[in-house]
Structures are given as C-alpha cells and as structure tokens.
Computed example of a mutant assay.
Amino acid sequence: MAKESTDNVTIDLFQSQRRPGRPKTNPLSRAEQMKLNKRRQHRRDRARGLKRIELKVEESVYVALNQSAEAQGMSRSQLIERILTEAMALTDQDV
C-alpha cells in the first residue's frame, strides 16, 4: 500500500510526522507580550484616574470578600472600593 500525503484515513502512517501547530501571529515572545499588555493596562487605568493599592488579608477575609462580591454581582475590587468609600464617608461624618 502506497503512502499518500493527502491520505487521512490511514493516520497511523503519519504518526512520525510532526503536524504544524498554530501559526505564530505575533513577532514578540509570550513574556514580552505579557509585559506590553500589563504596561497598556496601567496606562488605561491611569487615564481613568485609577490608582493601585495592594493589601494582604487573611484567607477567611479573602473568601468572604469573594462570596460577597459574587452575591452582589460585582468584582472584588469594586466591592473593596465601595467598602472603603463608605468607611471614609462615615469617618468624615464623625469629624
């Protein structure tokens, strides 16, 4: 039986051949793409007037925030911002 390059029925004949994967569409490496995307995200956030805050919390607080945010249909970031805004409004009233 002859091996035809267009024969897909006898696939076992082609197991040794490497099939081309998804073609490379971007000249940058994945790491460089991620770095560029993160830089663009920071610029978009800055243009929207957003500032970055990083904090560490106990896992129980983290889980509670996730559950509460999901129940209210918002992101965890939006929930934390709302909690902080409400807390700041309360402290402004007390002063």
Rank of each mutant, 00 (worst) to 15 (best):
A2Y: 06
E4G: 03
D7H: 02
D7G: 01
N8I: 05
V9I: 08
V9F: 06
V9W: 08
L13W: 08
L13D: 08
F14W: 14
Q15D: 09
S16G: 15
Q17E: 11
R18L: 06
G21Y: 05
P23G: 09
K24P: 00
N26H: 12
P27Q: 11
L28W: 14
A31D: 08
E32Q: 10
M34R: 15
K35Q: 13
K35P: 01
N37Y: 10
N37H: 10
K38I: 09
R39H: 11
R40H: 14
R40W: 09
Q41C: 08
R44H: 04
A47G: 01
A47V: 02
A47C: 01
G49C: 05
G49S: 03
L50K: 07
K51D: 00
R52H: 04
I53L: 09
E54H: 03
L55E: 00
L55W: 03
L55C: 08
V57R: 04
E58D: 13
E58S: 05
E59C: 07
S60N: 14
A64T: 10
N66Y: 07
N66L: 12
S68R: 12
A69Q: 01
A69L: 04
Q72R: 15
Q72C: 04
G73D: 02
M74G: 03
M74Y: 00
S75T: 15
S77C: 07
S77V: 09
Q78F: 00
Q78T: 12
I80N: 03
E81T: 12
R82H: 07
R82E: 13
L84P: 02
L84E: 02
L84S: 10
L84A: 14
T85C: 06
E86T: 07
E86R: 10
E86Y: 02
A87W: 11
A87G: 05
M88P: 05
L90R: 13
L90S: 13
Q93I: 08
D94Y: 04
V95E: 15
